[in-house]
Amino acid sequence: MKQINAVKAIALNTFRETVRDRILYALIFFALVVTVLGIILGSLSVGQDIRILKDIGLATISVIGGIIAVFAGTNLVYKELERRTIYIIFTKPVSGWQFVLGKYIGLCLCVFVMVAAMGAFLTLIITISTGNYALPVVAHQIIEVGQELSLIYLELLFVTALATFFSTFSTPVMSVLFTLSIWLAGHLGKSLLELGKLSQNQTLEQFLTVVFYCLPDFAGLTQIRGHLLYGIHPGLEVMLYLITYVLAYVLMLLVLAAIVTERKEFT
């Protein structure tokens, strides 16, 4: 129980810090972008305005959520070292895994609140744009946006774990570069295999095949999101596979981050 208390305390502290420090700026930015788009599209497009608004809105949520996860995540440990607050934590009966898990949960909670708030705002704009306030229509919009957001959040869970992992041994700038590279490369999916074949170089082909199997397959996740936009729902089996897939990656990254933290010296 005491071990959970420490994780909870670190998570709450991370959540408070991120929310009080920077999250509102991102929220305001997103609100402005979507509002402006909603107004412009509402006045210019015929027929497809809601689809475009939803598409752009969800992409913006994904990008802004990713930015928060990457930039807050890569600073997690660095800031504690820079401010020397890490001394306060590791001179108390706190293990590396409690620190890493607490930091990760705190940041995921923050990203969740952020994504949920942006999603709520997007649903509101869509509802206003459609002009149909009937309860079944609004409920349908909420479910549609909610399904998309849960897939976006699943991806962000991974990005946050990646940023947390790199932050345990690298400077923020390098961590951002590593995290963004892997995140973007994960979106290439099978293109990596095709690139290997096109190269006609066996070594490069083998290397890219290894990279493909090591990287998370975000392309698959994006494809499912695309299908959802057109009303094609993945089955329960696919969803369970996706959740297990992401959680396995997250667990592996957090275990590695905990090992690095446990072995770290605080000069």
Binding site: M1, K2, Q3, N5, A6, K8, A9, I10, L12, N13, R16, E17, R20, D21, I88, I89, K92, P93, V94
Partner: peptide
């Protein structure tokens, strides 16, 4: 970003 009281609470939580 924490108040003094919140920080003491944090320290207490780390000790369980």
């Amino acid at each position: 970003h924490l108040t003094g009281r919140e920080f003491l609470d944090f320290a207490g939580e780390l000790f369980g």
